[in-house]
């Protein structure tokens, strides 16, 4: 369990993390989602005691990091890929980490096997691909068999097979009763991996909800209607209290804010109106995430010129 209370981090005048409260529960995968620069990594570094909070506190299993027992047996973390001396072998890296926490050397071979690096274990890490570096980082996180696992952007640089593997791993770790906290800036990835979602933007928590609830609330759907009699269609629907907007492009398609295309079709059919298209459009989670964080993104790219 990870618990943050009024956790704040300021760098000079800039507030990276702004008095946030959250709890990461064991037994489920909690996604930590936010655009780049939202404060995800800073928060994770504070969890691990690498950055000191400006105010507030964060605890792991009720204690500040490193205040009891062997830290690697309590919390394992992947903080950044390739945070390993390029001249050291994968095995060499894991061996010193194991020694620092009195973890048996046999565990090194176990985690190497677990992440699929056994064959390249004695190769210098400088020659590793980004994906291999991520796997080594994950091996290091699991070295102490910790009850709390923190993974910062674990799928960065992984191929599709590797991404699926991380997803499955996070799931198994959570099923074993561990606390799993995974950050990403990709909503689509979180949708597949996380049970619970904490969304952060500009250092503030924008949402703290179960994945299912998030989908229900934010991934709104609408019915798209195309008709040569668009004006009559829109009038009829509005008379029935349904909100209708005209799609901003020239196609004349109507956005009908209703969840059931069958009901819309029956209503319009009964009135004898001609339809060219009637379909349900689910707005993607990515769209929902963009909407939610639109005001919280640090660096906007302007889309189009005539927008």
């Amino acid at each position: 369990m990870i618990h943050a209370h009024q956790l704040t981090k300021r760098f000079g005048g800039a507030t990276a993390v702004d008095a946030i409260d959250f709890t990461v529960e064991p037994g489920r995968v909690t996604g930590f989602l936010g655009p780049n620069g939202a404060g995800k990594s800073t928060t994770m570094r504070m969890i691990l005691g690498l950055d000191a909070p400006t105010a507030g506190r964060v605890t792991v299993n009720g204690r500040a990091h490193g205040t009891s027992g062997a830290p690697l047996r309590e919390i394992g973390a992947l903080l950044e890929a390739g945070a390993v001396h390029p001249g050291r072998s994968a095995r060499g890296h894991l061996r010193w980490m194991a020694a620092s926490n009195a973890i048996p050397a046999a565990r090194v071979d176990e985690v190497l096997d677990l992440v699929g690096l056994t064959e390249v274990a004695d190769r210098r890490v400088g020659k590793f691909s980004l994906g291999m570096g991520q796997r080594l980082g994950i091996a290091a996180a699991l070295l102490g068999d910790p009850g709390v696992v923190v993974l910062d952007e674990p799928v960065n640089g992984l191929d599709p097979e590797g991404i699926r593997w991380v997803r499955g791993l996070a799931r198994r770790l959570a099923d074993e009763g561990r606390t799993v906290f995974v950050s990403s800036h990709l909503m689509s990835e979180m949708a597949l991996m996380a049970d619970h979602l904490i969304v952060i933007g500009r250092g503030q928590i924008l949402a703290d909800t179960s994945m299912a609830d998030f989908m229900r609330h934010h991934a709104a759907s609408h019915v798209l209607v195309r008709s040569p009699q668009a004006t009559q269609v829109a009038d009829l629907l509005r008379q029935h209290g349904v909100e209708v907007t005209v799609q901003p492009d020239d196609s004349g398609a109507l956005h009908v804010h209703a969840g059931d295309p069958a009901a819309v079709g029956e209503l319009l059919g009964a009135a004898g109106l001609t339809l060219h298209e009637l379909s349900l459009v689910r707005s993607s989670l990515e769209d929902a995430f963009m909407t939610l964080t639109a005001d919280a993104v640090e660096y906007h790219a302007t889309e189009g010129v005539a927008a």
């Binding site: 570094r45 490193g66 390993v84 890296h93």
Partner: peptide
């Protein structure tokens, strides 16, 4: 400095908080 250059220092302090 090789640890600061490569980022290993963060692993070091995560493993040995003192």
């Amino acid at each position: 400095t090789a640890e600061y250059g490569s980022g290993t220092i963060r692993s070091s302090f995560a493993a040995v908080p003192s």
